[in-house]
């Protein structure tokens, strides 16, 4: 185990106001994830795993507790600073792909570079990312002309194009059949091996979880169990 931590979250608390009621989604969860690790976050619905994912992905801020992503303290950042951190350090892969359906695959992959203000080599970098997910011949296709697996590959290309510190994958195989799901999982794992990008997968599927090195189980807003899988222990 390395001492180079990418994610250092300490005593995270997140409280939502639902009308009169206060709901504690996280009640003091602490997590550390090292660079290059492949981790899955599991837990039943209501356990706080979505909230955990949102905070780790810098989409949301904790009510209290500290969180450092790749050396940057993000807990007290403004909205625009958070947007910049997301742009540079986090690549998202969603269950429902979330591609812009009117735009080409290339445009979709270029989008994070556009928001980064990148002008030079933008097209080339997006094309490289598409080639690395095996879609070199589908660059000008629109999402509606692609299969589910191909769409998720575009989404993965979009996630890696800015060379982020972590990839947050939220049920990445949830909308795919098992054969295509396997291909997507092996693509994600290959990218982790080749590039050393930290991979965090939120899932409730044990078959997915056992392909990762480490499983963090959440329950009632706290970390219930954090341990190596068989594969990770080797």
């Amino acid at each position: 185990m390395t001492e180079d931590w990418v994610v250092v979250a300490d005593d995270l608390v997140k409280t939502y106001k639902m009308g009169e009621m206060e709901v504690n989604a996280l009640q003091g969860a602490s997590v550390k994830i090292g660079r290059g690790e492949v981790v899955s976050i599991m837990g039943p619905s209501g356990s706080g795993k979505s909230t955990m994912m949102n905070i780790i992905g810098c989409l949301d801020r904790p009510t209290s507790g500290s969180y450092m992503l790749d050396g940057e303290l993000v807990a007290n950042m403004t909205d625009d600073q958070l947007a910049s951190v997301r742009n540079r350090k986090v690549g998202f892969v969603f269950q429902s792909f979330n591609l812009l359906s009117r735009q080409t695959a290339l445009f979709n992959v270029e989008l994070p570079l556009r928001y980064a203000g990148q002008v030079e080599n933008r097209r080339q970098r997006a094309a490289d990312a598409l080639i690395s997910v095996g879609l070199g011949d589908r660059m000008t296709h629109r999402p509606t002309e692609l299969s589910g697996g191909q769409q998720q590959r575009v989404a993965i290309a979009r996630a890696i194009v800015n060379e982020p510190a972590i990839i947050m994958a939220d049920e990445p195989t949830g909308n795919l059949d098992s054969k295509v799901g396997k291909e997507i999982m092996s693509l994600l794992l290959d990218l982790n091996k080749q590039r050393g990008t930290t991979l965090i997968i939120v899932t409730h599927d044990p078959k997915i979880a056992e392909q990762t090195q480490r499983v963090i189980r959440l329950s009632d807003g706290v970390v219930e169990d954090d341990g190596m899988t068989k594969g990770g222990a080797q």
């Binding site: 989409l59 909205d79 625009d80 997301r86 540079r88 998202f92 979330n98 989008l111």
Partner: peptide, 16 residues
């Protein structure tokens, strides 16, 4: 709304 959420997740600032 969902598209806006996605763009923000990818790093779009308010100004964008």
């Amino acid at each position: 709304t969902k598209e806006i959420g996605l763009r923000k997740a990818l790093g779009a600032r308010k100004r964008d």
